[in-house]
Design a protein around this nucleic acid. Structure first.
Lengths: 108, 108
DNA sequence: CTGATGGTTCGAATAATTTCGAACTATTCT
DNA sequence: AGAATAGTTCGAAATTATTCGAACCATCAG
């Protein structure tokens, strides 16, 4: 057991970069994922893509971009993964940003 | 005079797409441009890039991405161009968004 | 232990962006 | 008119992002 795949790295609050966050949110599929997490954490399996036939590797990659930008948290839970928006960190660094994005994406 | 190059096309307010706006703002150089316009319109020649040696075609392209996303207005003024943030349109479609982005980019 | 479920990671192919120089357009100044 | 200033546009090259399948890893149910 060299590397523990279940523990993924997340950027520290102070390392969050605004442009990275905006980029992560600038993709419709990723934004749709974040919208689903707006009401609270979700298991990854319950988080759906617009095209259900997309391979899981693509879904995993979308999550990776969101995680590496610091938008979401991805932690092991049972045999799956629990996803959540990093509200507190985002709010601390970029006050009001995630809220206005989620609000503006309501009708999309 | 077939085409009038001085009149560039701008998306209508209702055609603004959140993901396009976020994408346009997700580049450090473009975000820096928008920051310079936060205090009011500026002539393009007075709008500086981080690297002053960048060719003008690159600068023009950065402006194009911002304009086509609906973030900035680009209108002819004298022999140059007047750039401004489309505050009202952005605020109407995505309330609070541009404000929180500008606020969060203060320390960048 | 075995199989099924739920994900991550890697590498390669494809697609999209960025960057730059060159050519071109419009406006102003002399 | 001619030259200088200020930009746009086009096309090619370089860089990045996305997509997908295959291989792999971990947990749970039997």
């Amino acid at each position: 057991m060299a590397t523990d795949i279940t523990e993924l790295s997340h950027p520290a609050r102070d390392d969050l970069r605004l442009t990275n966050v905006l980029f992560a949110l600038s993709d419709p599929e990723r934004l749709a994922i974040v919208k689903q997490l707006a009401d609270g954490p979700l298991e990854m399996a319950q988080c759906h893509l617009s095209d259900p036939s997309m391979p899981k590797s693509t879904k995993s990659h979308l999550m990776k971009v969101l995680r590496e930008a610091g938008v979401i948290r991805n932690e092991p839970l049972g045999r799956g993964r629990r996803l959540s928006i990093r509200h507190e960190d985002l709010e601390a660094r970029f006050p009001g940003l995630i809220g206005s994005v989620l609000n503006a994406s309501a009708d999309v």
